[in-house]
Amino acid sequence: MNYRDKSIPTGPYSKPKPGMMPQMPATGTLNLFPPDEGFARGTIFRGLYEPYKKQTPIRPVPTTERERMLHDVNKYYFALHEMRMYLDNFPDDQEAINVFTNFQRNYIKAKREYEKRYDALDIEAANLDTAPWNWTVGKWPWEGVM
């Protein structure tokens, strides 16, 4: 099993391929799910997706504009985080770095747009400049639909 597998593995955990480590070639094409699909499945790497009993993930369907915008923040951060962990192991993969920076741009943009209209997500948010102080406005993440 590796990040570049063409097909989704269906069987149990495959054995590590001998001779592939320590350097994985930085050529070829990463086989990634699109961010939406990767977020729903729990990984953006097609080669690492291993469904439990062929369980199909429920794709979160945003019903409001707020949910849609938060979903964008979630999915781009998730994709960004996945690429970060991949690059921890394969720091010389320039193709992966390009994918990473693309997700990074999308995440920053999605977060700014969300915060422009709704609650601050973190201390860097631009909308923390007026009363009532935005950090204490709105539901907390564990309180259900936002």
Partner: peptide, 11 residues
């Protein structure tokens, strides 16, 4: 740092 959102939504 904390971001005020869940990593994956739960309702």
């Amino acid at each position: 740092r904390y971001e005020k959102r869940l990593q994956y939504p739960i309702n």
